[in-house]
Amino acid sequence: MVFKRIFDIIVSFCGLLFIWWVFLIIAFLIKKKMPGGPVFFCQKRVGKDGHLFTMYKFRSMTMEHCGSSVSVFGQSRITPLGTVLRKYKLDELPELWNVLKGDMSFVGPRPDVPGYMDCLTGEDREVLKLKPGITGPASLKYRNEEILLAKVEDPQKYNDEVIFPDKVRINRNYMKHWYFMLDIKIIVYTIIGKDLEEEFLK
């Protein structure tokens, strides 16, 4: 895992150094298209060993949203600009700072709000040994999660009973079969939009 952390530090630092101008453009657009609120969305998430940390994203929702932990495609609380940012994952660029700080890694389980990961029991709690990631094997499988949730009658129930347990299973298997080049493969597949063909996804 030493190489994983070294990779995270170097790539996140270079990313912040070379795309700072993208941050400025997105910040300007948010202020112009979504006035009356902050540029960044900051929220406590569950990290490695169950410790809480503050995760940073570009704001993609209105300030009056209900605060549900499940996002569904087409919801009115997601602004038109926010829809574009989320489609191309641009809202997650500030997480590079979380990676540089050591709160997150490039690859790992997506960090959940308190009430999910901290309620895991038994062997499922093994995933808490991993740093949460910007992307990961479960993220690849559920890259269209918001669209999937929009098709079911009760998105919150479907997430809690189907998607979340499957993500935990995938992330446990990722931890058991981890090797450095798997992380590189996941990052590349995330960028090009390709599905990860690994046994632990099935």
Rank of each mutant, 00 (worst) to 15 (best):
Ile25Asn: 09
Met55Trp: 00
Thr83Glu: 09
Ile163Gly: 02
Glu64Asn: 10
Met175Cys: 10
Glu123Asp: 10
Ile163Met: 15
Ser60Cys: 05
Leu130Gln: 15
Glu199Asn: 11
Phe18Arg: 10
Pro132Phe: 07
Arg86Gln: 07
Lys57Pro: 06
Gly15Tyr: 02
Arg125Gln: 15
Leu24His: 14
Pro114Met: 11
Asn98Pro: 03
Val162Glu: 08
Leu81Val: 09
Glu199Arg: 10
Ser68Cys: 03
Ser12Cys: 07
Met181Lys: 03
Leu24Thr: 14
Glu146Gly: 11
Asp112Leu: 13
Asn159Ile: 14
Phe40Asn: 04
Val152Pro: 02
Tyr116Asp: 04
Leu100Val: 07
Glu161Ile: 15
Gly82Trp: 00
Gly74Cys: 06
Met63Phe: 12
Pro165Asp: 07
Leu100Asn: 05
Ile187Cys: 12
Asp166Tyr: 02
Arg86Ser: 09
Val162Gly: 07
Glu123Cys: 07
Lys32Asn: 05
Ala27Pro: 00
Phe28Tyr: 14
Lys33Cys: 15
Asp124Leu: 06
Val46Leu: 04
Met117Asp: 15
Arg59Asn: 12
Val152Asp: 04
Glu198His: 10
Met61Ser: 05
Ala138Val: 08
Ile30His: 01
Asn171Phe: 01
Phe106Met: 07
Leu148Gly: 02
Arg110Lys: 04
Phe58Asn: 09
Tyr174Met: 02
Arg45Pro: 13
Leu93Ala: 10
Arg169Lys: 08
Met63Leu: 11
Asp124Phe: 12
Met181Phe: 06
Ser12Trp: 05
Arg77Thr: 05
Leu90Trp: 05
Arg110His: 05
Phe73Ser: 15
Asp49Gly: 07
Glu95Trp: 00
Ser76Phe: 04
Pro80Phe: 03
Asn98Trp: 02
Trp178Glu: 12
Thr83Pro: 01
Ser71Asn: 09
Arg45Trp: 07
Asp118Gly: 09
His177Ser: 10
Gly108Asn: 14
Pro38His: 12
Lys185His: 08
Ser71His: 04
Lys185Trp: 02
Gly37Leu: 06
Lys185Met: 12
Lys33Arg: 10
Leu130Lys: 13
Glu198Asp: 13
Phe23Arg: 11
Lys141Gln: 08
Glu145Leu: 02
Leu100Ser: 07
Ile134Ser: 00
Ser105Asn: 15
Glu145Cys: 01
Ala27His: 02
Tyr179Trp: 10
Lys57Leu: 11
Gly108Tyr: 00
Glu145Pro: 06
Lys157Gly: 09
Glu153Leu: 14
Leu29Met: 14
Ala138Trp: 01
Thr54Gly: 08
Ile30Tyr: 00
Ser60Met: 05
Val162Arg: 03
Cys119Pro: 03
Glu153Asn: 13
Asp91Lys: 06
Gly193Asn: 13
Val113Asp: 03
Pro132Thr: 11
Ile10Ser: 03
Tyr142Asn: 00
Ser12Ala: 15
Phe41Asp: 13
Lys31Tyr: 05
Pro165Ala: 11
Pro165Met: 15
Lys48Leu: 04
Ile6Phe: 07
Phe40Glu: 03
Gln75Lys: 06
Phe40Pro: 01
Gly47Ile: 00
Met1Asn: 10
Tyr88Trp: 10
